[in-house]
Design a protein around this nucleic acid. Structure first.
Length: 271
DNA sequence: CCGACGTCCTGCTAGC
DNA sequence: TGCTAGCAGGACGTCG
């Protein structure tokens, strides 16, 4: 579920609750996440103090005592929250990091597409991120964006979901960005003009910024690090609005399958 | 190399 | 009311 705005919200929510706290114990659930938490990591993490928490694309990076980093991905249904230790954990809670103040960080993920791993050097963390992620969408170089889009015949939708091209965009914000830019998500990316690339680049920035301002979007599972739901789902122009009127022109929003994902758009506004 | 598609997993719900 | 096929915000591997 969570795309960049949701991950950013989780990180901002958790920062004041985690930074400066020391990890006392780690408890691991039986069922495996996509990348299994390795036995032995718990021992390495205990006694570490959280130095910071940040985001890169949809990845959450928790800096511990040098050179350790806890790296989490929420997948489709991941939730990361701090709760009182005495409160019994919900089903599908896979990891619990007990802190030094009577609270614990909990990672819960119903579908288990998420992951939680420990990196033991700055170099290995950087390699992991560099192998998977392109630049962040904010302040993206227009020339880079244009060149990358021109070099591939895949649909725009596939390009926007490609984390190596831009980090952090997912299905919701790809659709919303295409609508704001007036571009059909199935349009071949190598048919884009410079002007269209620029419109798309700015649309992505604007949509993501507004979504962050709204604390992300809650469709079903998403909650922030403090347990609050997002609000941006109320601002959607196309996503999940099949058959409802386009806010710009009133035409019924259409839905189709592009790049293997449900894609929502306005036939009239987007070409 | 590229793009299309299947797969991982569980829970909810639309439709019968 | 009860059942089930299909779908869900992501990422990665495989196939042609």
């Amino acid at each position: 579920m969570p795309e960049l705005p949701e991950v950013e919200t989780v990180v901002r929510d958790l920062r004041p609750l985690l930074v400066g706290r020391t990890i006392r114990t780690v408890r691991v659930g039986r069922r495996k996440l996509r990348d299994a938490w390795k036995p032995g990591w718990g021992r390495k993490v205990v006694g570490s103090t959280v130095a910071g928490i940040d985001r890169r694309g949809k990845w959450i990076l928790v800096a511990l005592d040098e050179p350790l980093s806890l790296v989490l991905h929420l997948g489709m249904t991941g939730q990361l929250r701090v709760r009182p230790t005495e409160e019994s954990p919900e089903d599908h809670t896979h990891l619990r990091f007990e802190l030094d103040n009577g609270a614990e960080l909990r990672f819960r993920d119903v579908r288990r597409f998420g992951s939680a791993t420990l990196f033991e050097s700055r170099a290995s963390l950087d390699r992991h991120l560099d192998e998977r992620l392109g630049p962040e969408p904010f302040g993206l170089d227009p020339e880079y964006f244009f060149n990358r889009l021109k070099s591939s015949a895949r649909p725009l939708k596939a390009a926007l979901l490609d984390q190596k091209l831009i980090a952090g965009v997912g299905n919701i914000y790809a659709d919303e960005s295409c609508h704001l830019a007036g571009l059909y998500p199935g349009k071949r990316s190598n048919t884009m003009t410079r002007r269209q690339c620029e419109a798309l680049r700015l649309a992505v920035e604007r949509v993501l910024t507004r979504a962050i301002d709204g604390r992300g979007s809650t469709i079903r599972d998403y909650i922030g690090g403090s347990g609050l739901a997002g609000n941006y789902q109320n601002e959607f122009n196309v996503y999940g609005r099949t058959g409802q009127p386009c806010p710009a022109c009133g035409t019924a929003i259409a839905m189709t399958r592009i790049a293997g994902r449900s894609s929502h758009y306005c036939r009239r506004c987007q070409a």
